[in-house]
Structure formats: structure tokens, C-alpha cells
Design a protein around this nucleic acid. Structure first.
Lengths: 246, 246
DNA sequence: CAGTGGTCTAGACCACCGG
DNA sequence: CGGTGGTCTAGACCACTGT
């Protein structure tokens, strides 16, 4: 963990600062409800201008790591506000954040013509456009956690294989490394449903058990729909976190 | 709707700019996927520095009104991304946004010693601290939508009456007008549950029906816990929206 | 190449807080 | 009062897009 800002680093300075400050918080050098050095002091310490300091602090404040009080100072948030909330994560990343070991069992992988509702979500107008349909049972600490159906919209020549999905990597990471597609934003809805016979069997719950249904449209860095994904979570195991502001 | 930035206005200039730009978008003068004037042009138009322009554009981008493309310009977001998502709203405001008429039926209002879990959520250490417990059946277009249990932590002398709740106003608005307490942030969890006999009766669903349980800790502008509120939503009527970024 | 957004600086004045 | 964060300016250089 570097502790100085390097002007020659490829990363912007405010971003290096974010990492440094997160490090101070995670390592408990700066403790909850304690003030961190003032903006003018940070200017001196890291040799960057106050504007740059503020850019870093603003982002950390939005992410819930810090809070500010006009005229008093900038303080470390209590733990319960520190979760990286409203952050776009894959199932894999989500589980790791919760301290669970993610895994997955492939149920199906095929290239299909999308059903009308999926085509609409992905903004597909070309009748011949096909999408990958990926069905996976998702596990956390080796217990069934959710049933995921993903529709991936790729370009000509971009292919996904069983082997790709086998590599326990996050799908998001795969998309980035293989196709340079970076998930940057998603619109998500959550609602309640009950398990069908088949779903119940896969998730190992009684038929009719309550489930949490998440539907998500994922956008790439080009602001094009990249994936439409449904996850049916076991109602007894999954909890969703959000932070709201006004 | 003012269309110039007034340096003497009490509102900061970037905030005035936000309102002006939102106005241009809402009135369709600037249309989805069209570029808005460049930052240097906006400097000229509104006579404020580029930093100030960028502060406004950054916020509007985060709120989903605009998107930026490096080297190309700043563009108006398509409608579906324009919902004020992840915004902290009361039940009343939430329903109005969905185009539904909110209403409520008071079931109970009392001043109690909070149960231990609620006291913990509200960060109460004083054994004698009492909180208001408010139970209400929430309606949308005159149909049962949710069952709300709210624990309000007020100071000595701050009182809530049945009459206050009768005024169909948002509780958030009431807190602001009566006590100058401004809800500014909330941590929310969502999970699935099933209706007990009593809940089922009030919500007019069969016992055991799936429900969406929202639990929220609301913080005031002083960053103190102000309310702990649970809402049991009818699973067949309520859907939750979120936007995620990375 | 000219034009765009992204990063950064050094400075200024204000509003708020606490002693 | 001095110190804090909040707002704002005028300028600079960079990285990226299109032509």
C-alpha cells in the first residue's frame, strides 16, 4: 500500500489519494468518528492542491467512508455506513463482500433468439440478433443461494464457452478481459415471488417458498445494454442493502 | 424557471445551474442523446467558471440526467435512466412518483421504551429514552400496499399527535416543518418474508403470502439516527428500483 | 488538427464552529 | 478569534474523439 501520491503514476492523483485514505481507514489508523487531517493539512502531507484533496474526499464521502461537518472537520464513518453500497457488483463480488465463498454450477449455455421481453430490455431491434442464455445455480459457502438466468448481448465473433464459465472468475471480469467490455452501470428491480417446483428443487427449498427476484439491465462503458439478468435468491438467505440520499 | 445564474442568489451557483439544466431537459429543449453545450460554451452562456459548470454537470451525471463521453461531449440521458433513483423518499413521495394516490390509516401511535433491537438501530444508550411507535396501514389508490411500523427518536418537548398524522402530509415534510429535522440519508435493507395472520388480514392477502420487508434507518442532517422504520409491502404490488454504478 | 471532457494548480472569499 | 469545510475563479496541461 503506497502512502504517497506519485505525480508520474498513471492513476490520477485524486484516485491515489482515495486508495491511501481507504487504507488508513481499513487499517484502523483513522478510527470511526475521529477527524481526519484537515484539507489544508492534507495539502501539505501529500503535496497536492486542495481541489484535488476535495475531489478525493467528496468521492469517499459519497461512498460512505467519511462524513463532513461544516466548520468542524471531516470524520471517519462508523462501520455500519462503510459498506460499498449501491456499487455495481457481480454475484461473485457480492458474495466475497459478504464474506462468503461464491461458486456456481452451470445448468445451460446456448445461443438463442431472445424472447420478446428480453429483446426489449436489451434494446434489440434486429430480428436475427442472437444472445447467449446462461443458466447457473449459484452457491455461497457451498449452499444454494440463487438461480441466475443471464442473457448476454455480444457482437459478431465474440464467443462464450463452458470453459469460460468454469474458471470461477467473475463474469464481469471475463467480459472485460476477453472483450474489453466494462460493466459500468445497471438498472435493477427487486420484487417478491414464490418458488416453482423446479426452482424449489434446485434451490433446495419447499415449493412455494418466498424468493427475492432481482432483474438487472447491465450497460457497458459504451452505454449499450450488455446483459439482462434475473436472479432468484433464496428468501431465507439473501438480504439486499442500499443507501439512499437526498 | 430562471434561466440565468444570479451571483447574489442565496443558492450556490452550481445549484442554480442544476435547476436550469434540469429545466431544459424536462421541457425537452435538450433531448435524449443530444449533446448539451460544451463546458466552455456553458462558461460563456452563464458567466461562471468551468469548475462551477463541472460541479453541476457531475451531480447531474450522478443523478442520471446526463452522461459524458470523453472527447465527444455531454449528452442527455434517455428517459429510462432519468428516474430519480436511489433518492431518499417517504412512502408518500414514493407513491406519488409512481403515479399512485397515497393514503394511510393510523393503527397505533404511542410513546414507548424501544425494544432492544430498535434501541440498537437508533443508537440509543439511555435506558429512559422513549420513542414514538407509529403503526400505519399504507394505501395506494385506495388499495392496501404496505404495513408500516415506525420508531421515531425525538428530543425532549418534540411531540407528534394523531392530528399531525392525519394531515396526509409526508412524515418527512412534517419533521422538517415542525422540528427542523431534515432527513438526509438512510441505510435500507430488503428481504423476503411471509404474512402472519394479522398482517394478512390488514393487507387483504392470504396468510403466508410473500411480502417484501424493507427496514430503514433514517439519519437527520445532524447525522443522528432519527427513525427506524419497517415496511411490509404486498409482494404482488410493490417493486423496488435501484441504479448501480462502479 | 481543433474541440471535447478529465485532471490539476494556487489562490480567494464565504459560512460555520468552537474556545 | 482562528480553523474548518463550502464555493468560486482563471488558468494550465492532458487524453480522447472526430475529420
Amino acid at each position: 500500500m503506497p502512502s504517497t501520491v506519485d505525480p508520474n503514476n498513471i492513476l490520477p492523483r485524486y484516485y491515489q489519494l482515495i486508495n491511501i485514505i481507504k487504507g488508513q481507514i481499513d487499517s484502523k489508523k483513522w478510527k470511526p468518528h475521529e477527524p481526519i487531517p484537515s484539507e489544508r493539512q492534507l495539502e501539505e502531507i501529500y503535496n497536492v492542491s486542495r481541489t484535488t484533496i476535495r475531489q478525493a474526499l467528496d468521492i469517499l464521502t459519497r461512498q460512505g467512508y467519511l462524513y463532513r461537518e461544516h466548520g468542524r472537520g471531516t470524520f471517519v464513518s462508523p462501520q455500519k455506513l462503510q459498506k460499498g453500497i449501491n456499487e455495481l457488483t457481480s454475484f461473485t463480488e457480492d458474495m466475497l463482500k459478504r464474506g462468503l465463498k461464491p461458486a456456481s454450477k452451470n445448468l445451460n449455455l446456448e445461443l438463442i433468439e431472445p424472447p420478446a421481453d428480453v429483446a426489449a430490455m436489451l434494446d434489440i431491434h434486429d430480428k436475427n440478433q442472437k444472445v447467449y442464455k446462461i443458466e447457473r445455480l449459484r452457491l455461497a459457502d457451498n449452499q444454494p443461494m440463487g438461480l441466475q438466468t443471464s442473457y448476454l448481448l455480444l457482437s459478431e465473433g465474440q464467443e462464450i464457452t463452458e470453459a469460460d464459465l468454469g474458471t470461477s472468475k467473475s463474469l464481469y471480469r471475463l467480459l472485460q478481459e476477453k472483450f474489453n467490455l466494462i460493466p459500468t452501470e445497471a438498472d435493477e428491480t427487486l420484487e417478491v415471488t414464490v418458488a416453482s417446483e423446479q426452482e424449489a428443487q434446485l434451490l433446495q427449498v419447499p415449493e412455494g417458498s418466498p424468493l427475492l427476484l432481482s432483474e438487472r439491465i447491465l450497460f457497458s462503458q459504451f452505454r449499450r445494454p450488455l446483459e439482462f439478468v434475473k436472479i432468484l435468491y433464496r428468501g431465507d438467505r439473501y438480504k439486499y442493502y442500499a443507501r439512499l440520499t437526498r
